[in-house]
Simulated assay, not measured.
Amino acid sequence: MKTIEIDDDLYQFIASQTQQIGESASDILRRLLIVSLTEAQAPVVPVAQKTTEVQVKEETKPEVKPAAQAVVEKAVASAVPVGKSSSVFDFISPQDLSAEQSVVGRFLFILSALSRAHRGDFAQVLEIKGRNRLYFGQSEASLLEAGSSTNPKPIPNTDFWVITNSNTTRKKMMLTEVATKLGYDAAEVERIRDLL
């Protein structure tokens, strides 16, 4: 296996293409590249010659080795069916989650995945509040005004901010409330909370 360095924005794009939990970056790239190659290998029809005959070049397919064919079949079989509603588990891979070294990093990563899975409904997080403080806001300033030492951070790839100075138990409670608001059942809520 080779290691390559890529920019953060490219990595975020690759991660956003995750279709199932546990899908590696290699699997995602392979799936995306195979689709691109398949589209590029459409039959070639040359321009008609001076006569009225049109010659059609026979489509040639590249030789696919059995190992590569197995990878393609695995990627196709594991793809999320079209029309299936998104779930946060479609956007989180164990490798990506384990790359986040801190609790705050994992917390922000999970919230970002929830946002990608529920783009239209994620604004509901603004309704989640503590007794005396806001947990979520649309700006850093709104969270700073609502309480002292909140340490607000932006949720990656969203227009939302979240306080991060709370303890891990409070962060798990916040994830529980977010997942519940977004329609997850009790077992899924527990799985999401346990990702932290």
Results as ranks from 00 to 15, higher is better:
4 I>K: 09
7 D>G: 09
9 D>I: 08
19 Q>V: 02
21 I>W: 06
22 G>W: 00
27 D>A: 14
29 L>Y: 05
34 I>D: 02
35 V>Y: 06
45 V>L: 07
45 V>G: 00
48 A>N: 10
50 K>W: 09
50 K>Y: 08
51 T>K: 13
55 Q>C: 06
55 Q>R: 11
57 K>P: 00
59 E>S: 11
63 E>Q: 15
66 P>D: 10
71 V>Q: 15
72 V>P: 01
74 K>P: 01
74 K>Q: 08
74 K>V: 01
78 S>K: 14
79 A>C: 04
80 V>R: 15
83 G>E: 02
86 S>C: 06
88 V>S: 02
91 F>N: 02
94 P>H: 14
94 P>E: 15
99 A>G: 15
100 E>K: 15
101 Q>G: 03
102 S>Y: 00
106 R>M: 00
107 F>V: 02
108 L>K: 07
110 I>M: 03
123 A>D: 11
125 V>Y: 03
125 V>Q: 03
125 V>W: 01
126 L>Q: 10
129 K>F: 09
131 R>Q: 10
133 R>Q: 07
134 L>V: 04
134 L>F: 09
136 F>G: 06
137 G>E: 09
139 S>W: 11
141 A>P: 00
141 A>S: 13
141 A>Y: 10
143 L>R: 09
145 E>H: 13
150 T>P: 00
151 N>I: 10
152 P>D: 05
153 K>Y: 05
156 P>C: 11
157 N>E: 14
161 W>D: 02
162 V>H: 02
163 I>A: 01
172 K>D: 06
174 M>T: 08
177 E>G: 00
180 T>A: 10
181 K>Q: 13
183 G>E: 03
184 Y>F: 12
187 A>C: 02
191 R>D: 13
